[in-house]
Design a protein around this nucleic acid. Structure first.
Length: 430
RNA sequence: GCAGAGAUCGCAUAGCCCGGUAGUGCGGUGGACUUGAAAUCCACUGUCGUAAGACGCGGGGGUUCGAAUCCCUCUCUCUGCGCCA
């Protein structure tokens, strides 16, 4: 959410940004309209409150001096003021709510380097790593590989929960665990503190870190407790400091988190989403940084560097893409994606997303930094980046490292974590 | 899950029984004094608002002319009991 003062004092910047994104200014105008309405209503309400407060003070005086008639007259006046105030209070509240509901849907201000474009076709390639693997056989899709090796049981998962859930079995499940350990240690060795967050959050905290629309399409709600299953550890790890002022010398706060992620994936269908590419539950190792505004852009590059180094170690071929205006979404000011080459599918697909959210989340969460004992402290910047989403990493690994017989070569850095094993063997049953 | 005790302006603490402008200490900011610093003294130090002013005592609601204070409710913390990986 953008600071309301930005609308009042610097609306030209918001308008210029909307032009870049190619969206209309209607919402900006509405925010300004309701803000003005709210300011006026607040002023009127305050005037009446003042009148009432002054009058009410006369009651005890009148009673003390024994002037019962005067006391009754004041009581009547105060009562009618009270009714009028209640009415105005309701209007004031309504105007503010309207203003903020619209304001929350207005996207973050983009970084100047974000390329302009209408959709994902406008994304630009930032850099390319590794070699596109060559095969002397027809490479299989990950879906075929998990099927023939019995590494994943989607059917029985569908039986006990629903579609897009899965049992992960045998060597592929072991590789998943190795990836978790590998990624946590890799990022941890760069000064990031390992944190395991809760996997449910309450509504209030959740509204601070996501689009309101996500409650309908992304998150699972838990009844009767009114909790939400987290869609990524970014959410609890960013909301963790909600409403707090972090001592300046503790910043930047670098965190590497691991959690299961739960996503409803409403409305997603199609060939490209088969297998375990797009699922309702997966595990993700995430980098989170809470930083001072001056540091956030260099830390954004640091997060990307961590990803690049990690994925290079895994020996995979992928591109880094600079996401364009039309493909950005509301929260990030700038976003890099890593897109791995999937030889079975014959295309590059997203495996990592690395965002600087600047003060957009922190404004709503009211996370500030500074010296303890100070009022009116500045807002922090928040950044997040996938390190490894294990299900998608598994897809990239098995497609790029597949052998003619359908088995898979294990990336060298993971061999020690697999007890020296170098090839993923099929599961014996299923 | 049950019973009891709690939540007050960054931190600590008073006020609550018995309703009437939220006080004090620490921390912070500015100033005075000082060559400089410490110490000391003075002012300011929650939120919204250009301001006037309003609002603010964990959240929400109620009673009342008026609520930190009385009532209801929710959340969280502590203590004890119960249950339990």
């Amino acid at each position: 959410m953008l600071d309301i003062h930005m609308f009042r004092d610097n609306q030209a910047q918001i308008r210029a940004d909307h032009d870049k994104r190619g969206i209309s200014h209607d919402k900006i105008d509405e925010v300004l309209k309701y803000d003005k309405m709210w300011l006026n209503l607040q002023h009127d309400t305050n005037q009446l409150r003042q009148k009432k407060n002054i009058a009410a003070r006369g009651i005890s005086e009148a009673k003390k001096s024994g002037d019962e008639a005067k006391a009754q007259a004041i009581l009547a006046e105060v009562a009618s003021l009270g009714a009028e105030i209640s009415r105005l209070e309701a209007e004031t509240q309504a105007a503010k709510e309207q203003r903020d509901t619209i304001r929350m849907s207005i996207p973050n201000i983009l970084h100047p380097d974000v390329p302009e474009g209408d959709d994902e076709s406008g994304n630009t390639v930032h850099s390319v790593y590794g070699e596109k693997p060559e095969f002397d056989f027809e490479p299989r899709t990950h879906n075929e590989l998990i099927e023939m090796n019995k590494w994943v049981d989607l059917k029985r998962a569908a039986k006990i929960v629903g579609s897009r859930f899965f049992f992960l079995k045998g060597d592929l499940a072991r590789l998943e665990l190795a990836l978790q350990n590998y990624a946590v240690d890799f990022i941890g060795n760069r000064g990031y503190t390992f944190v395991q967050p809760p996997v449910m959050m309450n509504r209030q905290a959740y509204e601070g870190v996501t689009d309101l629309g996500d409650f309908e399409t992304v998150m699972y709600g838990i009844e009767p407790d009114k909790y939400y299953m987290i869609a990524t550890s970014e959410h609890p790890l960013t909301a963790m400091y909600m409403g707090e002022t972090i001592p300046e010398d503790q910043l930047p706060l670098r965190i590497v988190g691991v959690s299961p992620c739960f996503r409803r994936e409403v409305g997603s269908h199609g060939q490209s989403d088969l297998g375990i590419w797009r699922v309702h539950q997966f595990t993700k190792i995430e980098q989170i940084v809470i930083a001072k505004p001056d540091d956030s852009w260099s830390i954004h590059e640091e997060l990307l560097k961590n990803c690049v180094d990690l994925w290079n170690e895994l020996g995979l071929h992928y591109e880094v893409v600079n996401i364009c205006t039309g493909d950005m979404g509301t929260v990030a000011a700038k976003k890099y994606d890593l897109e791995a080459w999937l030889p079975g599918a014959g295309q590059y697909k997203e495996i990592v997303s690395c965002s600087n959210c600047t003060d957009y989340q922190a404004n709503r969460l009211q996370i500030k930094y500074g010296q303890p004992g100070h009022a009116n402290q500045p807002i922090v910047h928040t950044l997040n980046s996938t390190a490894v989403a294990t299900s998608r990493a598994l897809v990239a690994i098995i497609e790029q490292n597949q052998l003619a017989d359908g088995r898979v070569k294990i990336p060298e850095v993971l061999v020690p974590l697999m007890g020296g094993q170098t090839i993923l063997e099929p599961c014996q049953w299923g």
